[in-house]
Simulated scan of single mutants.
Amino acid sequence: MDETRKKTAVHPDLRGASVFITGGGAGIGAALTEAFLQQGAKVAFVQRSDVSVFCDRMETRHGNRPLFIRCDVTDEPALRAAMAKAARAHGPITVLINNAANDTRHDTLTTSSAEWDALIAVNLKSYFLTTQIAVPMMQAAGGGAIVNFSSISYMVGMGEMTAYTTANGAITAMTRGHAREFGGEGIRVNAVAPGWVLTERQLRLWADEEALAAFLPKQCLGRHLEPMDLAGPVLFLASEASAMITGQCLAVDGGVVTVAA
């Protein structure tokens, strides 16, 4: 990545903000954690795997260590405990980023009921639960911002991941409903819908040379997305720079949806 693309706008209102991110220790989530740390925010995040090394690196790089809480977002008691811990450490959560997801490929005809429930639990139910937990804190604080991660996958009709695309369509609907439900209390709720972002997981499992070459012409912009490409849009939606924006789903995909439309 060149130095110009590393530059990120500064949002002074995010300095000192209590931010909670799901899946904030890897992939897009790690890029978001770092971006908020750069803004001077107090960041807590949950991740299933041990990412203490990542936290060490963030502290060395930015002098601002995130609070890592090991947690599976489908474990409701553990999730509630993690968010309570974050609030005790950093103050009431006023910025919630729902990023955790599982896009494992699956065949509709062979997916069991239990597998469907497990995928919906991480890709949709966890977003509802974190919102349910965070909103009372935001109400007490006089407002807040929620940014949910959807995906263009449901917009372009991707196959072999029906639970994932179903969840992401529902996330967009939930975003709009919650924007209406909580807007009167100064709580904004928006979503971002990434295109194909080349995280380590994508590169390891699906992004071979042939697939990458076939996908790029679908974009308007001529390079593939990287995790940090999501940082600017999320910071914008979390900050007062977007004070009158709510109930929206912003496609960050290099122009795939524009072409598809």
Results as ranks from 00 to 15, higher is better:
A101P: 02
H106D: 06
P12I: 09
E209G: 13
I21H: 04
H106A: 12
G142I: 12
A214M: 09
A243V: 11
L216D: 05
T22S: 13
E185K: 15
F236C: 07
R80E: 15
C71D: 03
M174F: 14
E181H: 11
M244W: 12
M158R: 13
D208V: 13
L205D: 15
A89N: 09
S239W: 01
L235E: 02
P77L: 13
R176V: 14
G23R: 00
S112I: 12
V53Y: 08
E185Y: 10
A86K: 01
S18M: 00
I187S: 03
S49Q: 09
M174N: 03
L216G: 07
L221S: 14
G159P: 10
Q248I: 13
E200G: 07
S153A: 15
L221M: 14
G186E: 12
N102Y: 01
E240C: 10
T104F: 10
S126A: 15
Y154K: 00
T111M: 11
P12A: 09
A101Y: 01
L96P: 02
E209S: 15
A241R: 04
E200H: 07
A81H: 08
E59I: 11
T175I: 10
L14Y: 02
R61C: 11
A118M: 08
Q39I: 06
T258S: 15
L14Q: 01
V234M: 02
P12T: 08
Q39L: 05
A31V: 10
L203T: 10
P217R: 10
L250F: 13
A251L: 07
A211C: 05
G232P: 01
K42Q: 05
P227W: 01
A145R: 00
A170F: 08
A86Q: 04
S112P: 06
L96Y: 01
S150A: 15
V192G: 01
S113W: 08
I187M: 04
